[in-house]
Amino acid sequence: MTRKIVLKILKEECNTNGDLARITGVSKSAITRYMKQLNESGLIKENKLGKSTIYSINPVYRDAIEKHV
């Protein structure tokens, strides 16, 4: 599931908890847990926009991730 989430963010198909939950078929709370792990590992960055959190791939790892996809 983590790989699927990273790919969706990388391809800019979706970048919020709600979008990721809808596209992956996983609950928002599960997405929140995955995003917490990805954020703690440094693979993604979080940007708060009002009540929403927008996720993006950390530029430091973007090239490495793209090579493995």
Rank of each mutant, 00 (worst) to 15 (best):
A30F: 03
G50C: 06
A30E: 06
I57D: 01
R3Y: 13
I9P: 00
V60H: 11
S56P: 00
R33W: 02
A30G: 02
Y61M: 06
N47F: 02
I65Q: 07
S52M: 13
L49K: 15
I23R: 08
R62D: 14
N17C: 02
E13K: 15
E46R: 13
E12A: 12
E66R: 14
A21N: 09
I57C: 08
T32Y: 04
T32H: 06
S27W: 10
E46M: 12
K28T: 11
K51E: 04
T24N: 06
S56C: 06
L20P: 07
A64K: 09
L43Q: 00
R3H: 09
A64D: 10
T24Y: 01
N15M: 13
M35V: 10
V26F: 05
E40K: 11
E40N: 11
L7Q: 14
E12P: 02
K48F: 05
Q37A: 12
I31Q: 01
K28I: 11
L38I: 08
I65D: 09
L7T: 11
R3L: 11
R33P: 04
T53S: 08
K48R: 10
Q37V: 07
N47Q: 14
D19Q: 15
R22S: 15
K51R: 15
I44W: 04
G18V: 10
A21S: 15
E66L: 11
P59W: 15
I5L: 14
S29P: 07
I23L: 15
Y55E: 04
R22G: 12
